[in-house]
Design a protein around this nucleic acid. Sequence first.
DNA 1: CGGTTAATTAACTTTATGGTTAAATATAGG
DNA 2: CCTATATTTAACCATAAAGTTAATTAACCG
Lengths: 121, 121
Amino acid sequence: MPDTLSQTFSALADPTRRAMLARLSKGRANVSDLARPFLREMSLPAVTKHLKVLEKAGLVTKTREAQRRPCALNSRPLKDAAAWMEHYRQFWEESLDRLDAYLKTVTAKQKAQGKKRGRQS
Amino acid sequence: MPDTLSQTFSALADPTRRAMLARLSKGRANVSDLARPFLREMSLPAVTKHLKVLEKAGLVTKTREAQRRPCALNSRPLKDAAAWMEHYRQFWEESLDRLDAYLKTVTAKQKAQGKKRGRQS
DNA sequence: CGGTTAATTAACTTTATGGTTAAATATAGG
DNA sequence: CCTATATTTAACCATAAAGTTAATTAACCG
């Protein structure tokens, strides 16, 4: 599936890759910098592969500098993915809305009742 | 990888599953409702499998009602995923900042130069 | 040139994904 | 009980993903 959103989400669906993005969010880093935290868990080629997934998804841009390959975060796909999620925001805020609505009916009733009772915690 | 974020992103990394979520965002639907738009592209069992992925990721809640299995959207994992993305917001807003900064220097220079030239395309 | 550092490619293995068809299960209803 | 509807399970296949080790490429440096 070559659609962009799928590629983006797919690239994000791995903790190693997310950690690499987190590292890049603190500044450029070349491959071995990015690899260092993971070299006890996996080999360098494995990291190269993860990086390639991030590149193909357009989340990372790799440049050349002598033997180094400095990488940088490219947030455009993240922006698009976040925009997709935005459609659903109402759903995770809904519970708050419901609480809000509930509180309004409660206070409305209290007003209708007059000031029989004091405020509750 | 049983970590929640990975499961969420992984579940989102498929257009069929995203479409199913979109459908559920418009209200409850049972399996055959969810399947209908895809039955020319894939079989019912394939849909069941996608649904299972969404369930395991906690994005969909399936209940029972006679032979039907009404499904509902559960946005909690989306909320968490969106929260993760939020860390990167500054990066996709940064380019605007840079453009902004650039435009400011440009207009500053134009002012400094006086009105020697007209606007460029 | 020859060695060292940085990163990639090749070849291969294992496991996960996404799909198929055919059979099974669950429930309503005559 | 029998049948139709709704959905799942089983068994299987093809391809992709994630990792490995060993070999290769690229560039600097003395």
